[in-house]
Simulated assay, not measured.
Amino acid sequence: MTAIAAALADLLFDRQIDVDTAFARHFTDDYRQRTDGVWSDHAEFVEHITHLRTVIADGSVEVHDELINGDRYADRHTVSARKVDGSEVAFEVLVFAELADDGRFRQIIETTTMLSGSAHDRGLGSAR
């Protein structure tokens, strides 16, 4: 079974793995995500991650709370990142997810709160 910290580390911070491979490892082909009220399908999510890789140099994920019950997953985590321009940003993220039979994410609904960063960084959670 996948977990959010491993998925985000592969998607955002591990440049040894391409986005499509990282996606397939942690998400189903019919994956969809709602971030702060905006829905994305598989292609839009990959576009979002590909964009973030041009903005974020490195970072980390700290999981504060995590609950798994059958095919349901919930967590509260913080993503802290150093951007390619040297500035830093941090978001607290609340996640409710559905897992597929193989343990990968089928759907995530998340709400993000910016903890630090510039006003321009507020939209990073859904930027493409």
Rank of each mutant, 00 (worst) to 15 (best):
R76P: 04
D29C: 07
A6N: 13
G103F: 09
A22D: 01
E47F: 07
F13L: 02
A7F: 03
E44F: 01
I17H: 00
M1K: 14
D10A: 07
L52Y: 01
V84P: 04
L52E: 03
I68S: 13
T2S: 15
A127I: 11
E66C: 09
D58T: 13
D20L: 10
A127W: 04
D30A: 14
A7Q: 05
S40G: 09
V95Y: 01
D36K: 07
N69T: 15
E88I: 05
V63P: 06
H120I: 13
T2A: 14
Q16P: 07
T2V: 15
M114T: 11
H120Y: 11
E88V: 09
R82L: 06
I56W: 03
R15S: 13
I17G: 00
R76F: 04
S116Q: 15
A7G: 06
R104I: 02
G123E: 03
I109M: 07
G117V: 05
F105T: 02
T21S: 14
R106T: 09
L12N: 02
H77C: 14
D10S: 05
L67R: 12
V63K: 06
A43V: 08
R104G: 04
Y73M: 04
A5E: 13
A57R: 09
V46R: 13
L8D: 14
A7T: 02
E44N: 05
A74S: 10
Y31H: 04
F23Q: 00
R32I: 02
G123P: 00
F23A: 02
Y31M: 01
G59N: 02
N69P: 00
G37N: 06
H64V: 12
V61Y: 02
G117R: 04
A127S: 15
I4G: 04
S118I: 09
D29M: 09
D18G: 08
A9T: 14
T50C: 05
R106D: 10
L8V: 11
D29T: 12
R53A: 04
D121S: 04
L124H: 03
E110N: 12
E62H: 13
D14W: 01
I4L: 15
T113E: 14
L11M: 10
L12R: 01
L99S: 10
G103Y: 06
V38S: 11
R15K: 12
F45Y: 05
N69I: 14
I56K: 02
H26C: 06
V19P: 07
R82V: 09
A57W: 00
M1P: 14
A43G: 12
R82K: 08
H48V: 02
Q107R: 14
D18M: 06
V46A: 13
F91V: 02
V95D: 06
F13P: 00
V55P: 02
V19N: 07
E62V: 15
R104F: 03
F27M: 14
V46Y: 03
A6F: 08
Q33D: 03
S80G: 11
I68V: 15
